[in-house]
Nucleic acid binder design. Structure first.
Lengths: 216, 216, 216, 216
DNA sequence: GATGAATGAGGGTTCATTCAT
DNA sequence: CATGAATGAACCCTCATTCAT
């Protein structure tokens, strides 16, 4: 099973270092990732998670009132660490269009580097829509930035968001499932930028520009 | 059952009214639509479906070997009727771009006219991916047509498909959930056409052109 | 374990003779009596009842939506058969005071003849107050009759009811638990009649009068 | 905590304020009263009691070996304080009949002044029968006194006790549940005295006589 | 083909109780 | 003494599925 993407893994490590109570909670969260990946979020059972964490189901309920609460907590964790990571990775970049391209490609790239993890993310988003909302916030900010900078021109913000999130989801899944050609991230970034009103050439150029390195 | 968009409903009914022998099967399928709409695909139980169809759970298993088989059969049915309805609605139209716009707007429009039905569709697609594949076929044909006609220019067919399906899904859901502004179908069609490489003006004009009437 | 009191047993027999569905239900009800008697109403589990009835817990839930529903159904059954039996046993008797004495003694007598059953009744009444209400109705009728006939004279109907039900409960339990002297039914009937305003001699005479035979 | 009738509360407090070492135990006992009142004795959990006492469940078990032990200890405490309070309130009164009336009315009066407390008492008695026994001792003493004084004349001591305890329980519950008319204590005291063989007029007069003031 | 009663393998959740710190 | 994390045995209930009639 592919490892967690770096930043999220780091967030887990942080929790594991805490006092015992939080350590167990972190174990349960990590275990839930494993279980969710192997059987899916909706089919996963509390017992499976508990067992994978090396505790009993009773213990699970000492930490989460409900299966849904675990999911919500996991969604939060993922949302926070992922948003931060992607935001950090575009730190200092002022061009909204370039930021948008980076975001798109980072998500799709995740499908290449950690397919299982990308599928998990998709699964969690489906089960905990608030995570989707959270992730969309950053995209929205970049979108508005690009619009203010006249890099984008869109008929409606909602339509633009639908492109951004819809394509991101479809492309990430395709990549994670191995159904995508090479450099699918570049291709999708290009079409998204065009959808947002950029001229094709400029969109293509921006989409294929090398990604800035991830901060440590 | 919230009304289907007329022609889709007709196609669905037509398929249901197959050989006399399968009367009960048809009832079960129709019942499953009701139940899936009211509690969701994954929460629906065989007993609920059977009851809604006016038969017992035992009877259900005379017609479907498994709950999943019902779902698969329903997915097939929906796929066939929906594809046919949408294809019919673009009958005689030769312009790939215009066909694409029509398709997009028909789906999104379904979210306006029959939100429950649209949500069901989304739910079924999630549970039975083959339905998504089937629906994408028509879009793919239009895409290729448009490309051949030089109306579209895309970096990769896969990326284009991701735009088409991803936006369609996101927009339809948004509309069905009442989170979209008026004429969201037009706005999304426009961005999709731009994504496929059309000049913004042309895309906008095509997207807002009046839809051809649905055939009886 | 002492048998059910005749009339209630008869009610069960009637149910057992019905179609299969009702037969299983009757089995479950009878099984619940056994289980309730041996571990108490509140400690009894659905599984115990199901097992005692020779079915699985799943089957239990095909017949009763809930443990409480089983209890309610049992309370109903007991209430109906017991009230009817006691009313029948005083059929044709016009004297409210004599009817009252008969009722008291029948209940307390149940504690002698079927202690386990009497304790069950007490337990069920505690858990399903509606049964207590039902049983009290007959007593209330007799009370009012006696008052109209000037056999009783009470400061308030509520106080009278408290005597009747309170003593009945305490005495039946005492008898069923083997803590009562012989003819405790007679003694308690006498004090109740006195409490309702009858002269001690008359009360004592009425209380010790031989009970009319039970109808077949 | 709904107020106890003053002196009873005082006695209870006094017992709670025992040797310094058992401070926590006292807190747990007091907490159990709160919890038992709000959710009932049988539904209360150790964790709830502990939490209400401001300690952890672990601490609970440093003081009580078992949940039942807490109940037993509480029953003892209530028994002692209640008996003492009621005995004190009849201090110096020599007439057994008058003492009996006072006792009855004090209990029923508790249902008026502190319904929650009365219901708790009833609940605890049901769960810990020894408490019922204890409370009955005082009544028994008064009964015997009255008999010796020829104020009472009863067919059997057991029957008399059943009247006293049975009516007391039923009336107190009725009052606490708000189902009783005004001065229900007087009415029930009157019927009890009649049941014990007093002439109606005398019983009524005694029952309605003003209660002696509670000692501070 | 339809019935409907029965099944049984879980699933989520609770809670009295233990024990190392 | 107090803590608080952990336990594990149950419990209630659900539901896809089977099968004799």
């Amino acid at each position: 099973m592919p490892p967690l993407p770096g930043p999220v893994a780091a967030a887990f490590q942080a929790l594991l270092a805490g006092p015992k109570r939080e350590r167990t909670q972190a174990q349960l969260l990590q275990a839930s990732v494993q279980v969710f990946q192997s059987v899916g979020v909706s089919a996963a059972t509390v017992q499976q998670v508990a067992q994978a964490a090396g505790v009993t189901a009773g213990t699970f309920y000492n930490h989460f009132a409900t299966k849904d609460e675990l999911l919500a907590r996991l969604a939060e964790l993922i949302g926070a660490s992922l948003c931060r990571a992607i935001r950090d990775s575009a730190q200092g970049i002022e061009d909204g269009a370039w930021r948008m391209a980076i975001g798109q490609r980072r998500y799709v790239g995740m499908g290449v580097e950690s397919p299982a993890w990308a599928l998990l993310l998709i699964d969690v988003v489906a089960a905990a829509p608030q995570l989707g909302e959270a992730l969309a916030q950053d995209a929205l900010a970049d979108l508005r930035l690009g619009v203010r900078q006249k890099r984008f021109r869109v008929p409606s913000e909602d339509a633009a968001l639908d492109v951004i999130t819809g394509v991101c989801l479809a492309a990430t899944r395709r990549v994670a499932e191995g159904r995508a050609p090479a450099r699918h991230d570049v291709a999708t970034a290009a079409v998204v930028l065009r959808a947002l009103g950029m001229p094709p050439d400029e969109a293509a150029e921006l989409a294929r520009r090398p990604l800035p390195p991830l901060p440590a």
